[in-house]
Design a protein around this nucleic acid. Structure first.
Lengths: 159, 159
DNA sequence: AACACCGCTGTTATAACATATCAATACCCA
DNA sequence: TGGGTATTGATATGTTATAACAGCGGTGTT
């Protein structure tokens, strides 16, 4: 993986290409990227940071796209199910996916200071946990892999 | 690891030895395992299942050990900080630790049907995520590794 | 014994996260 | 054009978690 999220990069281009990939995905799979969903994804992607559902809702409602919690949660459900966003369980927060489409088991590096999030890949079945699961007769359906700590930028200021 | 949690075992003995280990830990480190904390740990350990804070609170208050949320959350904070219990982030629930004392980075197998939980070991630094973290200059402080799926027992009934 | 200190507990209130339900509307397609 | 399905709007409520402050209880000191 690359963890490009912690590095300087052309974020406008990054967002553009991610949004294009998301649209392509939706078109290919017959999913409807409606205005609310589209805007929600843009907001999530606008920084590589985790946003709470109510933070997202605040953005949306400021733009007249709905004012009640279900608006945000429905958009998030759609995006997560479509693989266009991920939930960060350790924060009860959400982040846009930077490589939508590829069916993946994501792993995250989460800065506890600035909430920035970098996405990596795992393969749950190949890990030691996968071995343990096989030994126990457990069938893994979904995996959550999250590491909390300090991103490069915050190590300088905070540590 | 063993995932003894999914197998038949002498659970009374399992609990007794775990409680003894917990007490030894507290004694060694000058921590106070007060009645509420002790009972909370016993409740968490009574099954190898994840319990919500309010479930725990219901048990405690039925025994006259406090009726308000902070009672449960304080006990849980103590147990988690002391390494005697773990939070399951994917469920917002808590589980007793089956090998307290050993400083560990736990990983969990979680049954989505019966909420039973088996604890395994990880070493975040040695995983591919650890490699990614090093490459990105990210400093990992804590890791969350949770796999959801079906335990052996629930595969028979549910699938 | 009197005192101060500190950690734990009791209690109220509220914050933060999430979903159930039902009505209304928009979209697709036969 | 009509009928079904997905989406949105709105109200209410459920669930998880913490802030804040008062009081209690043991410990160590003098």
């Amino acid at each position: 993986m690359s963890a490009i999220e912690f590095r300087d990069h052309d974020h406008a281009a990054c967002m553009r290409s991610t949004m294009q990939a998301a649209e392509a995905q939706c078109a290919a799979r017959g999913l409807r990227l409606t205005p609310v969903r589209r805007r929600a994804l843009e907001i999530l992607l606008s920084e590589h940071r985790a946003l709470g559902a109510y933070d997202l809702l605040a953005h949306l409602s400021a733009e007249g796209l709905g004012a009640q919690p279900p608006v945000a949660y429905r958009a998030l459900d759609f995006l997560v199910k479509a693989g266009l966003a991920h939930k960060i369980e350790a924060l009860n927060a959400y982040v846009g996916c930077v490589h939508p489409g590829e069916d993946h088991a994501p792993a995250f590096l989460i800065c506890r200071n600035c909430r920035s999030v970098a996405e990596a890949e795992t393969s749950p079945t190949k890990s030691r946990l996968g071995d343990a699961a096989r030994a126990a007769g457990f069938r893994i359906e979904r995996s959550v892999v999250e590491a909390e700590g300090l991103c490069p930028a915050c190590q300088e200021t905070d540590a």
